[in-house]
Design a protein around this nucleic acid. Structure first.
Lengths: 153, 153
DNA sequence: ATATAGCCTAAACCTAACTTTAGGTCAAGT
DNA sequence: ACTTGACCTAAAGTTAGGTTTAGGCTATAT
């Protein structure tokens, strides 16, 4: 059993955050000894799940719902699975998006690197696609920077 | 030249958001005709950069600083490059983190899938690492779920 | 002529996820 | 005896990034 201060150090989360989570109902099983919270394996496991779901973009409110399902036992396995499947899809999408952003950033890094070297971006601005280095052209093309964002056909 | 309404549709951004960006100083070059904003190629390019920097996790305040640099001309090429390099590193980190989260989620999907099949998670809970399918074991091991999060050695 | 649509502003409002503040309990060390 | 440190609560405050509201102007279609 751990105190809130120990858990705070263990997970590098402020004490106030842990209390906030508790207040939001994220530790439905937590015990207290004369008012003081006792974090056990259960709660440590819960914090790991919270961290994961938070990073996957789930709001506290919905994490609370998940915790409620955990309290309801076997009957909610399917719901819980579906939540994880949903979040998995979400994170996969997010990673795709991030890779696109990365293409833009790589292109921009190259662009300003060149601008520094040349001392002027004028030549750079009127550069044709075919003049770009192969990898940078690839980034540029997959970045969406060339096309109009919404192809309002 | 485009009106704010046209740009809103083009980028699928609320008009209020575009006005908010303008108010924050994100369109330093924008012209007006009898009070009405005229978005040109300059601004379209700017919106693409804003979107990219926002998705990379940069705050509006710092995007504004970047726009100021753009107005200052050649002397700020290096600063601008450094910003993009920094954001690139940030996004690369974020993608790593997301892949870890994905490992946890894949493990959890498998776990609850099994729980659904077995109707009970008790056997699942006391399962040894060696009993997991190879890919799931890999996810489990790279998820950090097994170790204490802060190895406070 | 009048209604509708699209533009404008300033200022108030909103939401999530915390954090801070103010005030209080309790056990251990000096 | 008293100070320190770790715990507690309720409630107010904070921040970013918008959104909504209220009121007003102007051009075109009916």
């Amino acid at each position: 059993m751990y105190t809130i201060g120990e858990i705070s150090k263990m997970f590098n989360l402020p004490i106030s955050t842990l209390r906030y989570y508790d207040k939001q109902g994220l530790f439905p099983f937590i015990k207290r000894k004369s008012g003081i919270r006792e974090f056990g394996d259960q709660e440590i496991e819960t914090i790991k799940v919270i961290e994961c779901l938070k990073k996957s973009g789930l709001e506290i409110k919905r994490i609370k719902i998940f915790m409620k399902w955990c309290m309801e036992g076997k009957s909610t396995y399917l719901k819980r699975k579906e939540l994880f499947v949903e979040q998995k899809a979400r994170v996969e999408e997010e990673i795709k998006r991030m890779n696109q952003v990365l293409s833009v950033l790589r292109y921009k890094c190259w662009y300003y690197q060149k601008a520094c070297e040349l001392g002027d971006e004028k030549k750079l601005k009127k550069m044709d696609l075919s003049e770009l280095p192969d990898d940078i052209r690839k980034d540029y093309l997959s970045s969406g920077l060339n096309s109009l964002v919404k192809n309002t056909k």
